[in-house]
Protein backbone atom coordinates (compact mmCIF):
# COMPACT_ATOMS: atom_id res chain seq x y z
CA UNK A 1 0.00 0.00 0.00
CA UNK A 2 2.87 2.37 0.74
CA UNK A 3 4.82 2.96 -2.43
CA UNK A 4 8.39 3.12 -1.14
CA UNK A 5 9.79 4.53 -4.35
CA UNK A 6 7.33 7.41 -4.25
CA UNK A 7 8.15 8.03 -0.60
CA UNK A 8 11.83 8.05 -1.44
CA UNK A 9 11.49 10.46 -4.35
CA UNK A 10 9.37 12.89 -2.34
CA UNK A 11 11.96 12.73 0.44
CA UNK A 12 14.76 13.32 -2.04
CA UNK A 13 13.01 16.32 -3.53
CA UNK A 14 12.50 17.91 -0.12
CA UNK A 15 16.14 17.43 0.85
CA UNK A 16 17.37 18.84 -2.48
CA UNK A 17 15.10 21.85 -2.27
CA UNK A 18 16.25 22.45 1.29
CA UNK A 19 19.94 22.21 0.50
CA UNK A 20 19.48 24.66 -2.37
CA UNK A 21 17.88 27.44 -0.39
CA UNK A 22 20.51 28.69 2.05
CA UNK A 23 18.38 31.70 2.97
CA UNK A 24 15.66 29.39 4.24
CA UNK A 25 18.19 27.48 6.34
CA UNK A 26 19.68 30.60 7.85
CA UNK A 27 16.40 32.34 8.58
CA UNK A 28 14.84 29.36 10.31
CA UNK A 29 17.90 28.63 12.42
CA UNK A 30 18.44 32.26 13.40
CA UNK A 31 15.26 32.62 15.47
CA UNK A 32 15.82 29.70 17.89
CA UNK A 33 19.46 30.58 18.27
CA UNK A 34 18.68 34.20 19.11
CA UNK A 35 16.10 33.11 21.66
CA UNK A 36 18.56 30.67 23.12
CA UNK A 37 21.31 33.25 23.46
CA UNK A 38 19.20 36.10 24.78
CA UNK A 39 16.89 34.16 27.09
CA UNK A 40 19.58 31.69 28.15
CA UNK A 41 22.18 34.29 28.93
CA UNK A 42 19.76 37.03 30.00
CA UNK A 43 18.14 34.90 32.72
CA UNK A 44 21.41 33.24 33.65
CA UNK A 45 21.55 34.93 37.08
CA UNK A 46 17.82 34.88 37.74
CA UNK A 47 16.43 33.13 40.74
CA UNK A 48 13.23 31.32 39.83
CA UNK A 49 12.22 30.78 43.43
CA UNK A 50 10.89 27.25 43.45
CA UNK A 51 9.74 27.08 39.82
CA UNK A 52 12.91 25.26 38.80
CA UNK A 53 14.87 22.86 40.97
CA UNK A 54 18.14 24.35 42.24
CA UNK A 55 20.18 21.66 40.54
CA UNK A 56 19.38 22.84 37.01
CA UNK A 57 20.50 26.02 35.26
CA UNK A 58 17.98 27.95 33.19
CA UNK A 59 19.87 27.36 29.99
CA UNK A 60 19.77 23.61 30.52
CA UNK A 61 16.04 23.87 31.08
CA UNK A 62 15.63 26.08 28.03
CA UNK A 63 17.56 24.08 25.42
CA UNK A 64 15.01 21.24 24.98
CA UNK A 65 12.26 23.86 24.82
CA UNK A 66 13.97 25.84 22.08
CA UNK A 67 14.67 22.66 20.12
CA UNK A 68 10.98 21.89 20.45
CA UNK A 69 10.13 25.33 19.14
CA UNK A 70 12.50 24.93 16.21
CA UNK A 71 10.94 21.56 15.34
CA UNK A 72 7.46 22.98 15.69
CA UNK A 73 7.92 25.95 13.38
CA UNK A 74 9.99 24.26 10.68
CA UNK A 75 7.64 21.26 10.61
CA UNK A 76 4.44 23.27 10.33
CA UNK A 77 6.18 25.27 7.62
CA UNK A 78 7.22 22.10 5.78
CA UNK A 79 3.66 20.81 5.90
CA UNK A 80 2.12 24.05 4.75
CA UNK A 81 4.62 24.33 1.90
CA UNK A 82 2.15 22.16 -0.06
CA UNK A 83 0.47 25.51 -0.63
CA UNK A 84 3.52 26.73 -2.52
CA UNK A 85 3.45 23.60 -4.63
CA UNK A 86 -0.13 24.41 -5.41
CA UNK A 87 0.71 28.03 -6.20
CA UNK A 88 3.53 27.06 -8.56
CA UNK A 89 1.56 24.27 -10.19
CA UNK A 90 3.78 21.41 -9.10
CA UNK A 91 1.07 19.93 -6.89
CA UNK A 92 -0.81 18.78 -10.01
CA UNK A 93 2.21 16.84 -11.20
CA UNK A 94 2.14 14.92 -7.91
CA UNK A 95 -1.65 14.60 -7.77
CA UNK A 96 -2.05 13.12 -11.25
CA UNK A 97 0.63 10.47 -10.66
CA UNK A 98 -0.67 6.94 -10.06
CA UNK A 99 0.25 6.86 -6.37
CA UNK A 100 -2.00 6.98 -3.33
CA UNK A 101 -2.22 9.84 -0.87
CA UNK A 102 -0.87 7.71 1.95
CA UNK A 103 2.48 7.46 0.11
CA UNK A 104 2.40 11.17 -0.68
CA UNK A 105 1.74 12.14 2.94
CA UNK A 106 4.41 9.75 4.27
CA UNK A 107 6.94 10.95 1.70
CA UNK A 108 6.33 14.57 2.55
CA UNK A 109 6.39 13.85 6.29
CA UNK A 110 9.70 12.00 6.17
CA UNK A 111 11.24 14.60 3.87
CA UNK A 112 10.14 17.49 6.06
CA UNK A 113 11.17 15.72 9.23
CA UNK A 114 14.67 15.15 7.86
CA UNK A 115 15.26 18.83 7.20
CA UNK A 116 13.61 19.93 10.40
CA UNK A 117 15.70 17.52 12.45
CA UNK A 118 18.89 18.71 10.76
CA UNK A 119 18.06 22.26 11.80
CA UNK A 120 17.34 21.21 15.36
CA UNK A 121 20.62 19.35 15.59
CA UNK A 122 22.40 22.51 14.46
CA UNK A 123 20.59 24.42 17.22
CA UNK A 124 21.70 21.80 19.74
CA UNK A 125 25.30 22.14 18.60
CA UNK A 126 25.15 25.91 18.96
CA UNK A 127 23.69 25.43 22.44
CA UNK A 128 26.67 23.30 23.39
CA UNK A 129 29.01 25.96 22.10
CA UNK A 130 27.45 28.57 24.36
CA UNK A 131 27.67 26.38 27.42
CA UNK A 132 24.98 23.72 27.42
CA UNK A 133 26.12 20.33 28.55
CA UNK A 134 24.49 17.07 29.44
CA UNK A 135 25.70 14.23 31.60
CA UNK A 136 23.73 11.82 29.49
CA UNK A 137 25.87 11.37 26.38
CA UNK A 138 23.65 8.62 24.96
CA UNK A 139 20.95 11.25 25.24
CA UNK A 140 22.29 12.93 22.14
CA UNK A 141 21.28 9.85 20.21
CA UNK A 142 18.04 8.91 21.95
CA UNK A 143 16.76 12.47 21.65
CA UNK A 144 16.34 11.77 17.94
CA UNK A 145 13.27 9.70 18.79
CA UNK A 146 11.17 12.51 20.29
CA UNK A 147 12.57 14.88 17.64
CA UNK A 148 11.30 12.61 14.90
CA UNK A 149 7.88 12.21 16.52
CA UNK A 150 7.47 15.96 17.10
CA UNK A 151 8.35 16.76 13.49
CA UNK A 152 5.97 14.18 12.04
CA UNK A 153 3.16 15.47 14.27
CA UNK A 154 3.55 19.07 13.15
CA UNK A 155 4.17 18.33 9.48
CA UNK A 156 0.91 16.41 9.55
CA UNK A 157 -0.74 19.39 11.18
CA UNK A 158 0.69 21.64 8.46
CA UNK A 159 -0.58 19.27 5.76
CA UNK A 160 -4.04 19.24 7.31
CA UNK A 161 -4.13 23.04 7.42
CA UNK A 162 -2.88 23.28 3.84
CA UNK A 163 -5.48 20.81 2.55
CA UNK A 164 -8.19 23.02 4.02
CA UNK A 165 -6.84 26.35 2.82
CA UNK A 166 -7.66 27.78 -0.58
CA UNK A 167 -4.71 30.18 -0.92
CA UNK A 168 -1.51 31.25 0.79
CA UNK A 169 -3.11 34.33 2.36
CA UNK A 170 -3.88 32.52 5.60
CA UNK A 171 -0.27 31.50 6.08
CA UNK A 172 0.76 34.34 8.43
CA UNK A 173 -2.34 33.85 10.49
CA UNK A 174 -1.54 30.16 10.95
CA UNK A 175 1.93 30.98 12.16
CA UNK A 176 0.55 33.44 14.74
CA UNK A 177 -2.60 31.67 15.84
CA UNK A 178 -1.39 28.07 15.76
CA UNK A 179 2.36 27.92 16.12
CA UNK A 180 2.79 30.57 18.78
CA UNK A 181 0.15 29.31 21.23
CA UNK A 182 1.40 25.73 20.84
CA UNK A 183 4.89 26.93 21.65
CA UNK A 184 3.85 28.96 24.72
CA UNK A 185 1.60 26.23 26.11
CA UNK A 186 4.20 23.49 25.75
CA UNK A 187 6.37 24.40 28.71
CA UNK A 188 9.28 25.24 26.44
CA UNK A 189 10.14 28.42 28.36
CA UNK A 190 8.98 27.53 31.89
CA UNK A 191 7.35 24.53 33.59
CA UNK A 192 3.66 24.43 32.68
CA UNK A 193 2.74 24.09 36.33
CA UNK A 194 3.89 27.68 36.80
CA UNK A 195 0.82 28.73 34.82
CA UNK A 196 -2.61 29.08 36.47
CA UNK A 197 -4.44 25.77 36.35
CA UNK A 198 -7.17 27.07 34.01
CA UNK A 199 -4.46 27.69 31.41
CA UNK A 200 -2.22 24.72 31.88
CA UNK A 201 -5.02 22.20 31.39
CA UNK A 202 -4.72 23.18 27.73
CA UNK A 203 -1.07 22.23 27.82
CA UNK A 204 -2.15 18.63 28.12
CA UNK A 205 -3.80 18.91 24.71
CA UNK A 206 -0.66 20.32 23.12
CA UNK A 207 1.45 17.53 21.52
CA UNK A 208 4.56 19.63 21.95
CA UNK A 209 4.21 19.42 25.75
CA UNK A 210 5.03 15.71 25.66
CA UNK A 211 7.80 16.11 23.12
CA UNK A 212 9.58 18.82 25.07
CA UNK A 213 9.08 16.87 28.28
CA UNK A 214 10.64 13.78 26.72
CA UNK A 215 13.66 15.72 25.43
CA UNK A 216 14.11 17.39 28.81
CA UNK A 217 13.89 14.02 30.51
CA UNK A 218 16.56 12.62 28.22
CA UNK A 219 18.96 15.56 28.23
CA UNK A 220 18.43 17.04 31.72
CA UNK A 221 16.93 14.21 33.69
CA UNK A 222 14.02 16.46 34.55
CA UNK A 223 10.53 15.63 33.35
CA UNK A 224 6.93 15.94 34.45
CA UNK A 225 6.01 12.51 33.08
CA UNK A 226 8.09 9.37 32.57
CA UNK A 227 9.88 9.65 29.21
CA UNK A 228 8.33 6.39 28.01
CA UNK A 229 4.89 7.84 28.66
CA UNK A 230 5.77 10.99 26.68
CA UNK A 231 6.92 8.88 23.74
CA UNK A 232 3.77 6.79 23.93
CA UNK A 233 1.46 9.82 23.88
CA UNK A 234 3.48 11.40 21.03
CA UNK A 235 3.16 8.19 19.00
CA UNK A 236 -0.59 8.31 19.41
CA UNK A 237 -0.61 11.89 18.16
CA UNK A 238 1.49 10.77 15.17
CA UNK A 239 -1.01 8.09 14.20
CA UNK A 240 -4.04 10.36 14.60
CA UNK A 241 -2.59 13.34 12.74
CA UNK A 242 -1.03 11.32 9.90
CA UNK A 243 -4.34 9.57 9.31
CA UNK A 244 -6.18 12.88 9.39
CA UNK A 245 -3.72 14.30 6.84
CA UNK A 246 -4.38 11.39 4.48
CA UNK A 247 -8.12 11.81 5.02
CA UNK A 248 -8.04 15.51 4.13
CA UNK A 249 -5.82 14.90 1.11
CA UNK A 250 -8.30 12.35 -0.20
CA UNK A 251 -11.16 14.72 0.52
CA UNK A 252 -9.62 17.71 -1.23
CA UNK A 253 -8.90 15.58 -4.30
CA UNK A 254 -12.32 14.08 -4.92
CA UNK A 255 -13.99 17.25 -6.14
Amino acid sequence: MIDTRAVYVLWLREVKRYSRSPSRIVSTIAMPILLLIFLGLGFRQANFGGILPKSISYISFLVPGIIGMSLLSTSVFAGISVLWDREFGFLKEITVAPINNLSIVIGRAIGGSTTSMIQSIIVLIVAMVIGFSSENLIGFVTILIPMFLISIIFISLGLILAANMTDIQGFGMIMNLVVFPLFLLSGALFPIKALPSYIYVFSYLDPLTYGVDAMRGILCNLSAFPVVFDIFISSIFVIILLSAAVYFFNKSESK
Binding site: R17, G89, F90
Partner: peptide
Protein backbone atom coordinates in the same frame (compact mmCIF):
# COMPACT_ATOMS: atom_id res chain seq x y z
CA UNK B 1 -0.94 21.24 -17.90
CA UNK B 2 -2.00 24.62 -19.16
CA UNK B 3 -0.16 26.30 -16.27
CA UNK B 4 3.53 25.57 -15.75
CA UNK B 5 4.09 22.72 -13.29
CA UNK B 6 7.83 22.28 -12.87
CA UNK B 7 9.90 22.46 -9.69
CA UNK B 8 12.23 25.41 -10.15
CA UNK B 9 14.60 24.23 -7.43
Amino acid sequence: FQEPALDSY
